[in-house]
Nucleic acid binder design. Sequence first.
DNA 1: CCATGAAGTGTAAACGCTTGCATTTTTGAC
DNA 2: GTCAAAAATGCAAGCGTTTACACTTCATGG
Lengths: 332, 332
Amino acid sequence: MSDRPPTLHDVARHAGVSTATVSRVLNGGPVRPGTARLVRDVVKRLGYVPNQVARGLVTGRSMVVGVLVPDLVGPLNAAIARGVEDVLEAHGMHAVIVTDHRDVVREAKRIETLVARRVDGLVLIGSELDDPTLTDVTATTPVVHVGAERAPSDERFPEVRIDNQAGIEKALARLAELGHRRIAHLAGPRRDGRERHDAIRQLAPRYELALAHVVDTDFSEEAGRDAGATLLRHRDFTAVLCANDRSAAGFYQAARDEGLNLPDDLTVVGFDDLPWSAYLDPPLTTLRQPGRDMGRLAAERLLHPEASDAWRGVRTLVPNLVARESMAPPPT
Amino acid sequence: MSDRPPTLHDVARHAGVSTATVSRVLNGGPVRPGTARLVRDVVKRLGYVPNQVARGLVTGRSMVVGVLVPDLVGPLNAAIARGVEDVLEAHGMHAVIVTDHRDVVREAKRIETLVARRVDGLVLIGSELDDPTLTDVTATTPVVHVGAERAPSDERFPEVRIDNQAGIEKALARLAELGHRRIAHLAGPRRDGRERHDAIRQLAPRYELALAHVVDTDFSEEAGRDAGATLLRHRDFTAVLCANDRSAAGFYQAARDEGLNLPDDLTVVGFDDLPWSAYLDPPLTTLRQPGRDMGRLAAERLLHPEASDAWRGVRTLVPNLVARESMAPPPT
DNA sequence: CCATGAAGTGTAAACGCTTGCATTTTTGAC
DNA sequence: GTCAAAAATGCAAGCGTTTACACTTCATGG
């Protein structure tokens, strides 16, 4: 219980050995069992904990990877982060999570401090930075994107993302199977929103579905409600594909306001499968993003860039259609 | 674009000055304007970024505080973390978030690595560690709790928490005002659950409310639904206070399954005000936890332990009653 | 101009650890 | 026992910064 925490040197002195030996005991170098035991005793007695800052300075490694998330509120981001932690932990490393609150300059700043702290890698979720800026700021630190906002053009930046097109196709197929013929879309912004919208436009004909209306949202509940109100001025469609679950929740409100009975009057499909999506009324049919797997994949790639199964460029994961009561055959 | 990132020394050499001078330029020491400009040019040209690890080693400060959260999925945790970031940023510091996934030994481990990295402070959200363990592991690092699971007994550990009793009282007062007389409670686990339960038991009489039934939950939607089913075998109450919003969402399901019409048949009140609580059907009346303020307060305390308005021991914040449509007068 | 102090700048010693290399000790075969 | 090889240990040089302290300038007033 001294004032300043004990150092390697303190341990060495108490054990009557050199700092080198103590270091080796701690890091599994060659030492005689007796010496090792002695040293370990002293370590325990003194409550010595190696100073990772000093260690990092000499080894050049920090055993930490930074995870940059746009915000903490999205369960999807949480799931991705969790996946990253899964594999880091298996390697004795740690994840530190940093948020940027959707602000490009702040994002760059955050990355810079992470790099200045010499993290061993960076997982960037939904990054909006362009490659030149990123290259500039990351210097020699390896980076993996998860669902980047812009498509990375540089091979230095592998990326994991969701296969929006495949997901949409699953939903369309199911809708067609149920007998729907005319659908509407609550479109979302940014890359994911665009991709989903494009997929619908492109794939709907293949399933003999007509895309009757499209209204824009910003992925929020409120926008979903507003867009829903606009949309419901027409009644010439029997199903709505929402940009995501949040906007679907908003749409529910609009439908209620119109006195609609879900799913009998109208089928609603979301995207994400948030934890509470099953608790909406009616429980929402949605496309589940395998967040945790995405995180795992990203971290794996970060840690083993040379692995036999290493990939480059973009790697996509296909969402699952989680069928719940919000999906039904069209009213007759 | 060299192989290894440029060091202070590189900058000094290119600028023809000593490392000390460069350091002073960067840290605002006394230097002649001309020299400063020259050095800054070189810094920019070389793309030099100070190595915070080295800096941390000599200064003993990291300008980073660790935020330990049980998990990332709770929006409340996110809000608290956000509050912490607010004040850190204002001090030029950074927050790193680390999760422990509700596991006591892992929690201790995480704290240890944070301390070994010499974070300048620790904000522990919902920590389950007892004081001796914590004292042991934090050594000289300042700690502030937010909603700790056990009541800290040690003055070293100030704490910010929600005033469950005051919150419950607000809800009870409003219920009585609406004319309710008999209520039920979906009780939650752990400290918050207990405090809320105790508050109801203790305060209900004061508002002429009878607590007809209590069923336990674990704060989850599923438990809320199960507990709701149990509860609804009786019909001798007109309002339900739920342990939190998630269990309230579960209760909604149970009520639907029973064919109940909310809020006409039954009033439901939650606790937390999650982002989606307003999008339940009917929108949930609930007690809002001022997470961001809690985080701000905690960080403030961490950074200025000697401030004039510094407090010690526990500091509580009162939740607000957010009245929405799930609350109505009792059926006549 | 010189003494005087203030302001700038350089030197070198930490900070706490790892690690290559030299040195000592141990081991085992003879 | 002796000696060489192997194993364990110690020495000391960094890792990239900051910061006393000492030293050099430079301006100022006499």
